[in-house]
Design a protein around this nucleic acid. Structure first.
Lengths: 259, 259
DNA sequence: AAAGGCATTGCATATGTTGCAACAAACAAA
DNA sequence: TTTGTTTGTTGCAACATATGCAATGCCTTT
């Protein structure tokens, strides 16, 4: 629509990956250096990029500031954050918190466990429905029409032996998830990582949020994570209540007793 | 330099304050609605703004994601964060962490205390040298030339009875700060808020960072905060060491014994 | 049904962006 | 030192691109 703005966004993204010189930016955009310069100057004025000591361009602080504002606008985050911290410190594992917004699930919070695990997740990114258990936990509890919308964007690609690589496999897993009461990820994206996730209810009683615990398989097996379910369910329940959920009092389901 | 990009940045900033309709954006830019529309469409495509349920425009998630990336690039933050959390939980007060970058001090971390205090500070924003004690703590330890650069951007305006409202008052305060070993803010920006701040050293032995404790006067007086100095200095010292400072072992200065 | 408000599209115009070429500055090699 | 090379910056003419207009479509309200 607007070529110049599209280029500007392209530049910001480029520069977010690593610092770049003027020439590199111009090459990337396939435009003349002078064009790239004027673009960068405007972005610099707005604080979206900044000049580093060596003259190269890096990310500007305005991006940090705006990101914080955007995060603050997600009210659920502040209501849940303390619970996430508690869960992370009690289990020692990394905790993610996702919210269903439009047709996608966004990570709105993340608290690292004791050993930091290198994961593709990052606050603000989209949790893909077939690679992130938070997204599965949320999707499993949606009406058929909402679930269908979530599936539209899904790209089925095999990452590991256990990846849900077809639409039908995913749907079956969502059904199992709902019956079971929680979602599992048995190394479906990264061989050596597993997670479990629970739905979180909002004030209207819909599942708009999800919370997950992630661990290296070497640190905690899927069975170990299942063992955390009583605590985990308790935390998820408290968050739901904080978010205004007036649903029925929580009672341990049969499936839990079996563990 | 680039009108279109400048407008785009303007729009993102506008929308960050509150959600806006197409017409409102057009009015603000003083352009035709169709122009504003095409701009917003491009920004939406890049994830910088998004359409809310009611058709209005709000901040996009890409801003959150980019903000997180930018924050992660500030290595000092990750090295210091745990210490800040400890300090906040032990004192119950809000802790700020600032870094000197170029000619300004940027808040790179903030941990809220028990009672959340409404403050103008936010991660990513510039800490003004005459309104934020972190900035004073850093400025006090700079060479005259760097200090002069920091003073260039200073805008002297009176906020309260104790505000440092002239260049000379500020310079005197910085000198006192350096002699004393820590910076104080006795309600200089907000009547009812006071802080103390300490310099933090980097691997080269320069003061590149600053850390502050902020409290409502009603909760903790300046004297109360001074009472926290032993703990506070200990934390600042540990952070300096984590950042690679090989300076002399820390010993309580005389000024501290006098408290 | 009609009217009003708001978002969206096609198109001609002209404004703002572009590439060029020339210049400046920093650095390396001779 | 001079010379060559690389990188960043400015002025200007050409034209591509963003612009405003007018027309259309889609709701909501009366």
């Amino acid at each position: 629509m607007s070529q110049t703005v599209a280029r500007a966004i392209d530049v910001v993204t480029l520069v977010s990956l690593a610092s770049r010189s003027l020439g590199e930016v111009a090459d990337h955009l396939k435009v003349h250096k002078s064009t790239a310069l004027r673009l960068l100057q405007t972005l610099e004025e707005g604080g979206f990029v900044r000049r580093l000591g060596d003259g190269r361009y890096g990310m500007g602080f305005e991006l940090i500031a705006l990101g914080q504002i955007a995060l603050d606008q997600v009210e659920a985050r502040s209501l849940a954050h303390a619970h996430l911290q508690g869960l992370a410190s009690k289990t020692g594992h990394t905790v993610h918190f996702g919210q269903l917004i439009g047709n996608q699930v966004i990570y709105i919070d993340k608290v690292d466990g004791h050993g930091t695990v290198a994961m593709g997740s990052r606050i603000g990114l989209t949790a893909k429905i077939n690679t992130a258990s938070v997204a599965k936990a949320i999707a499993a509890y949606q009406s058929d029409s909402v679930r269908a919308k979530l599936l539209v964007d899904a790209v089925f690609e095999r990452y590991t032996r256990t990846t849900l690589a077809t639409r039908q496999e995913l749907i079956d897993d969502l059904d199992r998830t709902r019956a079971r009461g929680w979602a599992e990820d048995d190394g479906e994206y990264e061989e050596y990582i597993n997670c479990i996730a629970l739905p979180v209810y909002d004030a209207r009683g819909s599942v708009t949020y999800g919370i997950s615990i992630t661990a290296l398989r070497a640190v905690a097996s899927l069975d170990d994570l299942r063992g955390q379910l009583p605590l985990f369910r308790d935390v998820a329940h408290h968050i739901s209540q904080n978010l205004g959920w007036k649903g029925h009092e929580w009672t341990p389901p049969n499936s839990l007793k079996a563990i």
